[in-house]
Computed example of a mutant assay.
Amino acid sequence: MPVERIGPPLTGGERETLRAFLDFHRATLAMKADGLSDEDLRRRSMPPSTLSLLGLVRHMAEVERSWFRRVINGEDIPLVWSDEGDYQVAYEASESTRSEAFEAWQTEVEHSRRIEERATSLDLTGYQARWGEDVSLRLVMLHMIHEYARHNGHADFLREGIDGTVGA
């Protein structure tokens, strides 16, 4: 089943626009992996890099968990793939499967959406321990859009290398 990707509103309010751009980029990542086998999804970009589409999906599960659950919601939970807090572990997807990676990612996206929807304001803050600073939900949403956009660029190149699919 093809991934549905809805473009952001052209005249929406701030929160609606941030939410829509974030969902647009989430759908873009899913679209870049659509129709590929586990083997294709594990295919690495070029040595010595371990970057793969499956690794990107795993990484974004970590990023969703970190920013929304750990920072904004203040949950004391480990990363998805590393109890030691090593974000690089997520990129090592050589033994991973589509179902494992996408289930973890989609679970974290659902948590993120609930946290954002329950927040009364984009000015809500959470503590970002890595920076030693409080950050607003607004900053988190903008950071997530940036993170997805950057990695979706990687996904474009990875997908083209797998089967020649480009664009969108």
Rank of each mutant, 00 (worst) to 15 (best):
Met1Trp: 04
Glu4Asn: 11
Ile6Lys: 14
Ile6Trp: 07
Gly7Lys: 12
Pro8Gly: 03
Pro9Leu: 05
Leu10Asn: 10
Gly13Pro: 02
Arg15Leu: 05
Arg15Lys: 10
Arg19Glu: 14
Leu22Lys: 01
Asp23Gly: 11
His25Thr: 07
Met31Gln: 14
Met31Ser: 13
Gly35Pro: 09
Leu36His: 01
Asp40Gln: 15
Asp40Arg: 09
Arg43Asp: 00
Arg43Glu: 08
Arg43Ser: 10
Arg44Phe: 00
Ser45Val: 12
Pro47Asp: 09
Ser49Tyr: 02
Leu53Thr: 07
Leu54Ala: 02
Leu54Cys: 03
Arg58Gly: 05
His59Gly: 04
Ala61Gly: 11
Glu62Phe: 06
Val63Phe: 01
Ile72Pro: 04
Asp76Asn: 14
Asp76Lys: 15
Ile77His: 00
Ile77Asp: 04
Trp81His: 14
Ser82Phe: 09
Glu84Met: 05
Glu84Ala: 15
Gln88Lys: 12
Ala90Val: 08
Tyr91Gly: 14
Glu92Cys: 02
Glu92Asp: 15
Ala93Asp: 05
Ser94Ile: 05
Ser96Arg: 11
Ser96Met: 12
Ser99Phe: 05
Glu100Val: 12
Glu103Asn: 12
Glu103Pro: 00
Trp105Glu: 07
Trp105Leu: 15
Gln106Met: 09
Thr107Val: 00
Val109Gln: 10
His111Arg: 11
Glu116Tyr: 08
Glu117Phe: 01
Ala119Cys: 09
Asp123Tyr: 01
Asp123Trp: 05
Gln128His: 15
Arg130Thr: 10
Trp131Cys: 01
Trp131Glu: 15
Trp131Val: 07
Gly132Ser: 03
Glu133Thr: 11
Asp134Trp: 06
Leu139Tyr: 12
Met141Gly: 04
His143Glu: 09
Met144Phe: 01
Ile145Asp: 03
Glu147Trp: 03
Glu147Asn: 08
Arg150Thr: 11
His151Glu: 02
Ala155Arg: 02
Asp156Asn: 11
Phe157Met: 10
Glu160Phe: 01
Thr165Ser: 12
Val166Cys: 07
Gly167Met: 02
Ala168Pro: 09
Ala168Gly: 14
